[in-house]
Design a binder for these strands. Structure first.
Ligand SMILES: [Zn+2]
Ligand SMILES: [Zn+2]
Ligand SMILES: [Zn+2]
Ligand SMILES: [Zn+2]
Lengths: 153, 153
DNA sequence: TGATGGGTTGATATTTTATAACAATCAGGG
DNA sequence: CCCTGATTGTTATAAAATATCAACCCATCA
């Protein structure tokens, strides 16, 4: 179902490394828990709910409580490593953590895969629309539902 | 706080009339409950939560249960009279119920007022972005957070 | 008329998602 | 080591939404 085949382990690994590096630069704490939660978010190359993360995190150990997961997710979102998909109440790893932003996504209604769009032009159009309506732009969420290339075939 | 001063009673009344008319055309049932819920959604010219609607609906009578409200909201959303604001878990009346669409909104982070944008150009850009990424467009939500003109002054 | 059936609403219980509040623990600086 | 602030653990609860089945309404038609 993945849009492009790739070695997903590498994919996770590089996300973790990037996060680690950014935290060092910012002097924020990439603790084992936060690292593990980020790994779990990435583990399912699809949006994952907080309680799914909770279940995975609890495997083979005492069950953790919701705040543990939500606090870690809050941190990861704050740092820009994870986005929340509002229309799904779910979370995905960010494909471009170096540059803080709120995400713009396309969500396949057949396979649930999500594609993050990092397109400056789209971002600019949205900013412009806000300005034209008299708003000072802060940030935005865009979630497009549709059918992905794979699922059409 | 309202962007433009207006007689809000008239505003509500016209929304109800429009809904009534559209339901007659579509032969869907604009029941007293649905009418009342739409009225309550409009009553607060700002996003309103399902449970706020529930509280208002329950005033002076036996308390209604959540499904009553959610079912009415589902109908109103389905008919395009109401939009859900995903980032707020709240609902607003649609400013253009004649033409079914998912809403594109700007949300003031100071006063919580919401402005619906019915701009074809923006809609087109979003559709185009979906297409360029290989998705067959179905619909989209756009929620821009910012500060409105009033609140800046 | 009154049986039938679809759509709507009522009622009860539960699930899903998220947060509040406070205690325990940990990591770094004096 | 002791203090401090950040992080994590723990318990309880709030907020948002849905599942299920019963009751009701009302148009159709036998
Ligand atoms: Zn991103
Ligand atoms: Zn797909
Ligand atoms: Zn609308
Ligand atoms: Zn404002």
């Amino acid at each position: 179902m993945l849009k492009h085949k790739h070695n997903h382990d590498e994919c996770i690994e590089s996300a973790l490394e990037a996060a680690q590096k950014i935290c060092e630069e910012r002097e924020t704490r990439f603790t084992p828990l936060r690292r593990r939660v980020l790994e779990l978010v990435w583990s399912k190359h699809q949006p994952i709910t907080a309680y799914e993360v909770l279940d995975l995190l609890s495997e083979g150990q005492k069950r953790v409580a919701p705040p543990t997961v939500y606090r870690a997710l809050d941190f990861l979102i704050e740092e820009g490593f994870v986005h929340r998909i509002e229309s799904l109440n779910a979370f995905v790893g960010c494909s471009d953590p170096e540059h803080k932003h709120q995400g713009h996504f396309m969500i396949c209604t057949k396979c649930s895969n999500v594609t993050e769009m990092n397109e400056k032009s789209l971002h600019d159009v949205i900013k412009k629309a806000a300005k034209e309506n008299g708003y000072t732009y802060e940030n935005s969420i865009l979630e497009i539902a549709g059918v992905c290339e794979n699922c059409r075939n």
